[in-house]
Design a protein around this nucleic acid. Structure first.
Lengths: 185, 185
DNA sequence: GTCTATAGGAAGATAGAC
DNA sequence: GTCTATCTTCCTATAGAC
């Protein structure tokens, strides 16, 4: 494993940007190549299965973010209100304040759905459970906590969609603002 | 204008299903042709500018739905609560209870965004204003009504995204259930 | 690891016969 | 209106030299 000039993490980051902006089918090798500065051949060197491998790597990275960022928040002994606040900040950062789209949304369309559909569903479920956990810690019974977590997921993704459609991050930010109350109050 | 065997409305309907399922770039002429039963040449006969014209027609039809369905609800002299209830029923029907995706979401990605981005933004704005109108009739001041309408739009589109990702319409339906309260209470 | 070259297919779109 | 045939461009993917 020789180390490349550009760290793999950075490469996957740039691939992710293309997938987020153009969706799976719209992310052509030309775009992927241009965004990373790697020629087609180099891309196939790093990702032998081509586009599918690249998308997989981007999803891996997003899941790693969840484990590394949300995990510690959950494991901390902070109050539920504080945990909610930190989770909101994490999502705000992850989606660049509403400028980025969510891969789980884009990979549930067309051909990508056939390949990544199960993984998307599992990831949405996991994230919902994390949020539900916080609602439970705030004293809500499991079924109520689950509903609150679902509403929070709906707000996050709806905020992203509306913000993208309007070309204005304000709706996403306002949606995030309501999250702590949605989960806890 | 000779009349075709299949009414144009039905053709546009079927085109819409392909766009909703595969997005703009994923909706190939092959899929579009198969879904309508029309050969490529026939499609170009109806839509001289190809895919772009087809997508335009689908958007036109969606806007017509808005004028024909939401318009009368708004114009009626029903109570705001009843209007909200009817609007929710209309959205539920339009999105087939959560099984359909929203074109405004899909057409804000990749190449489609360059062509339809402005129209998407305008449509989202119009729909938000319609919802805000109901909130105002329920007694909320304009800024508050606008925030409530935005939250409703976020809930609708977030519900669609989460439902699609999970392959389960329940989140969308629960999101719709909260709409009247979001707009009015 | 990166390059050039290219295969092989699918994409969108058009032309002309019927 | 629909058909067949065709054009061009773009796509993913691979091969082999360096």
């Amino acid at each position: 494993m020789p180390r490349p000039a550009v760290p793999r993490e950075e490469i996957v980051d740039r691939l992710g940007e293309v997938f987020r902006r153009h969706g799976y089918e719209g992310a052509s090798l030309k775009l992927l190549s241009g965004a990373t500065g790697l020629g087609r051949s180099s891309l196939y060197h790093y990702f032998p299965n081509g586009k599918e491998d690249m998308a997989e790597a981007v999803l891996d990275q997003a899941e790693a973010w969840g484990a590394n960022t949300l995990g510690p928040v959950l494991a901390s002994d902070a109050a539920p209100e504080e945990k909610a606040r930190r989770v909101v900040a994490a999502f705000d950062d992850f989606y660049s304040g509403g400028k980025r789209s969510c891969l789980l949304e884009l990979f549930a369309i067309g051909d990508a759905r056939d390949v990544f559909g199960d993984r998307v569903a599992q990831r949405l479920t996991t994230l919902t459970q994390i949020l539900a956990r916080i609602a439970e810690e705030a004293g809500h019974a499991a079924p109520d906590a689950a509903r609150r977590a679902e509403a929070a997921m709906v707000a996050i993704h709806g905020g992203l969609v509306v913000s993208r459609g309007l070309g204005d991050t304000a709706p996403f930010r306002r949606a995030l603002d309501t999250l702590p109350d949605t989960l806890i109050r």
